[in-house]
Design a protein around this nucleic acid. Structure first.
Length: 430
RNA sequence: UCCCCGGUAGCUCAAUGGUAGAGCAUUCGGCUGUUAACCGAAGGGUUGCAAGUUCGAGUCUUGCCCGGGGAGCCA
């Protein structure tokens, strides 16, 4: 039996395989709390009624692994409403008394917990977050598949920068050659989109920037769709549909975990299409009205994003940024050439940009010009230019940052809690 | 890279420049309905490192190390 399903086993004799989460001793009564990965369940053992089980559990150390059998019964005094009347106990491994489990049932510092991330993930809160992450991923892939997008995974080793702006992790690649860890699958997706029409990739992404904030990891997961013959409006709609489906699926299938996190789900319930859309021009105007020093041509930082997103109860889409502050491959707005047909989707409650994307340049000559303006090595981009030589079409896509999205859904203070083993500047252990 | 904050027992934290403490954890004892159980007792310290000021430094000064938050950049 799993603890998750305890309610269906009321009155039955069951076996639970897991770990001792906590033990309360009250004279001749023991109240062990078991953990099996799906939840927590209190047990009860009386010395008088079951001396063997009592002796096996008495003094047992936190996180010792145990297999216990007993009868499930409804018990309002037990957390979760059900209790296991333990009859048999097998200790699989006893945590030594002279080297006790380091993570106690109390507050710990961030540094201590991150150094023991391999153990920290056993705590109910962390386990709930990881289960929500898994559901968010499942829902995201389900949505993309249902929309007819084909999963085409892109390489992790790349020969050169995708965007040329951010710092890459350089690795030795066989003999003398250097390679870089990908910072985006986008350029490759443009190729697979021309082959298959509607495509996406989902995998790890690496940024060697020395960002030290609660919104940054050096290794994070990104879902990137790309579609041939698609335009800016199509991608804004796809993005809001994707995010809404992820949020609604977690609300539906991981309600218990959101409860564990004490997440205020009223702030998520209304996350459904359409999302508000504002232009960059309007965004700057709004910021200035609120006394923010932003002026036209500036990119937005955390403060600006928070002001903009705080006006809405769901993510807000900001579109048509100045071309100068966007990536080299962004298609200019035919109505106003100084604008790029790009958009960002900003999560509420200060979680920042969760989606960035737009329409790509389809014209060969314009793309070459942009490569040169950005001092990018043309040789490395020949294959990419081929896509404009042979049957170029308008196309668009975006990238969704998984961890930022999950952090927002969970309401966690730090993005590092929503990935099993966070990789940050100055932290690659464990 | 820059700005700000922090580092004292295994953990979380106290300690006017004047004998380094508490709670939790561990060990021992008590308790038949506990809820991070509770009650009693015990053991546990190179105060991040190195210099300096001082009769005296956890506390003041300088440098370094480690970590955190933020800026820039981004998802």
């Amino acid at each position: 039996m799993t603890i998750e399903s305890a309610g269906q086993h009321e009155g039955a004799e069951v076996t639970l395989r897991g770990w001792l989460y906590n033990l309360r001793e009250s004279g001749k009564l023991l109240f062990p709390i078991f953990r099996d990965g799906t939840g927590l369940m209190q047990g009860v053992v009386s010395q008088k009624e079951n001396p063997a089980a009592f002796e096996a559990l008495r003094g047992l150390t936190q996180e010792s692994s145990v297999i216990v059998s007993g009868r499930v019964r409804a018990e309002p005094r037990a957390p979760g409403g059900y209790e296991l009347a333990v009859s048999e106990v097998e200790v699989v491994q006893r945590v030594p008394e002279n080297d006790p489990y380091p993570i106690q049932l109390k507050e710990h510092g961030v540094d201590f917990l991150l150094d023991r991330r391999h153990l920290w993930i056993r705590t109910p809160r962390q386990a709930a977050i990881l289960r929500i992450r898994a559901e968010a991923i499942r829902a995201a892939r389900e949505y993309m598949d249902d929309q007819g997008y084909i999963l085409t995974d892109t390489p992790i080793f790349t020969p050169a920068a995708c965007e040329g702006t951010t710092t890459l992790f350089e690795v030795q690649y066989i003999d003398e050659q250097k390679a870089y860890l990908t910072q985006s699958g986008q350029l490759y997706l443009e190729a697979t989109a021309a082959a298959l029409g509607k495509v996406y990739c989902f995998g790890p992404t690496f940024r060697a920037e020395k960002s030290k904030t609660r919104r940054h990891l050096t290794e994070f997961w990104m879902l990137e769709p790309e579609a041939a013959y698609a335009h800016l409006e199509d991608m804004m709609a796809l993005g809001e549909g994707l995010v809404s489906h992820m949020v609604q699926s977690v609300l539906k299938n991981r309600a218990r975990e959101l409860e564990t996190l004490k997440r205020d789900t009223s702030k998520l319930a209304g996350v459904k299409p359409p999302f508000p859309r504002i232009t960059y021009d309007e965004a700057v105007e709004t910021l200035q009205k609120r006394g923010n020093p932003a002026k036209w041509g500036d990119d937005f930082g955390g403060d600006e994003e928070t002001i903009l997103s705080s006006q809405f109860d769901r993510p807000v889409i900001v579109h048509r940024y100045p071309a100068a502050i966007k990536a080299f491959y962004m298609q200019p707005d035919p109505e106003r050439r100084e604008l790029a047909l790009g958009f960002d989707t900003l999560a509420p409650e200060g979680y920042g940009e969760i989606i960035g994307g737009g329409e790509r340049i389809a014209d060969y000559d314009l793309l070459v010009r942009r490569l040169r303006e950005n001092n990018l090595p043309e040789e490395a981009f020949q294959w990419y230019l081929d896509l404009r030589r042979y049957g170029s079409v308008p196309h668009a896509g975006f990238g969704l940052g998984l961890e930022r999205t999950v952090a927002w859904i969970c309401g966690t203070e730090h993005i590092r809690e929503v990935i099993p083993f966070p990789r940050m500047i100055y932290r690659v252990y464990p």
